[in-house]
Simulated assay, not measured.
Amino acid sequence: MSTHSPARLSIEGGAAFLLATAVTIACVVNGWFDHLCMTLRRSERYELDEFVGAGAVFMTVTAIMLARREWQLRGQLKFVAEQEQTAREAARHDYLTGIPNRLALVERLDDMAGEETALLLIDLDGFKSINDRHGHAGGDEVLKEVSRRLMKIRASERGGFVARLGGDEFGFLLHVQSARDAQAAMRRIARDLARPIHLPEGSVTVGASIGSATATAGRINADTLLRIADTAMYDAKHARQAPRRVGTA
């Protein structure tokens, strides 16, 4: 695939143009058109209009030049489009875990406007102590494992969507028919995240403080839904309900 810049293409085009001009002049000056025609006519004398012949050569070389330029430009445009698509995907995914990020979650919330939607915000309990004991490498492994477990749960939920919002905070989006659907998902998340996570230095456990907010028929926009769920999550985190704390809004 071509990655030449427009400036590079312009230089190549100019060189091809000069070559076409030089070939045309050489043909006219040396009488090559007459010679070619006489050869083809078995030495019969035939006067070919030099200007017509020169024009034919010039137009042929120019057409080849333009076709090549068009091919290169198409290749460059395709490359740019692929790069833009890659950049869009990267901008919507978390660099560490590979799952969607906050921007992707907000966009998904906007897409689900008008539907019965529950947003669960999850904050890990005890994550700081794991970072302190096992370093950032250990903390990163915990975040990756939490992401994998949430993605596994997502696969069984209707319209499920998981995102890492930053740090040790995650979002979980799903379609619901009643508050019981959200409560059931919250219980499963808390249960699965509480299972030990095995690191090279040993096993660790984290808890989950979860806050939820429900949008009924799109009456709550994405920003409001996030704010309500965030408030509920911090209420749950500060409530003295160990080891698993669940708050709703």
Results as ranks from 00 to 15, higher is better:
L73S: 12
S178K: 02
E145C: 10
A7C: 02
L9H: 06
R188Y: 01
L165Q: 04
I228G: 00
R8N: 04
A15V: 13
L121D: 02
T24Y: 07
H4Q: 07
G171P: 04
G166W: 01
G53C: 14
R195C: 00
M112P: 03
A185W: 02
A22Y: 01
N221D: 15
G126W: 02
V176D: 01
D168E: 13
A16T: 00
R148M: 06
I210Y: 06
E47F: 11
R74Y: 12
T3I: 03
V52K: 14
R69H: 12
S10I: 04
G135I: 13
G138R: 10
A22R: 01
T97A: 09
G166M: 03
R69A: 10
S178W: 01
F17I: 07
T39P: 01
L120N: 09
R245P: 00
R244Y: 12
L119K: 05
P200W: 10
A137Y: 06
E82G: 11
L103G: 04
R45W: 15
R154K: 12
V52Y: 14
D110L: 03
G247W: 09
R219C: 06
G207F: 09
D132V: 09
E201V: 05
D110K: 12
G159D: 00
V176R: 03
G166L: 03
R92W: 07
A155Y: 02
V142S: 07
A7W: 07
A232L: 04
A179T: 09
T224Y: 03
A213N: 05
A185S: 11
N101P: 13
G160Y: 02
G211Q: 04
G75P: 13
G114T: 08
V142H: 09
L48G: 03
D123M: 03
G159L: 09
R8M: 08
E12K: 12
D125R: 15
E201N: 08
D34Q: 11
L48E: 09
E50C: 03
R245I: 11
L173G: 01
T60H: 04
G202A: 11
T214H: 14
D34E: 11
D230T: 07
L150F: 08
S5W: 05
T216G: 02
A215N: 12
L120C: 10
T117D: 05
R195W: 01
R42F: 14
L226P: 03
A118Q: 06
Y95N: 06
C37D: 02
S5D: 06
A185H: 04
S178N: 05
H4C: 02
V206A: 07
L40Q: 08
D192V: 14
K78Q: 13
D168I: 02
M233W: 05
R45K: 13
M186Y: 02
L119D: 06
G207V: 07
C37Q: 08
E44L: 13
D230W: 07
A90H: 14
A63W: 13
I11F: 04
L225A: 06
A54M: 14
V80S: 10
A194V: 01
L66D: 05
R158F: 02
F170T: 02
I130L: 10
S147C: 08
S203G: 09
S10K: 06
E145F: 00
G139T: 10
L124K: 00
S5H: 09
A104S: 11
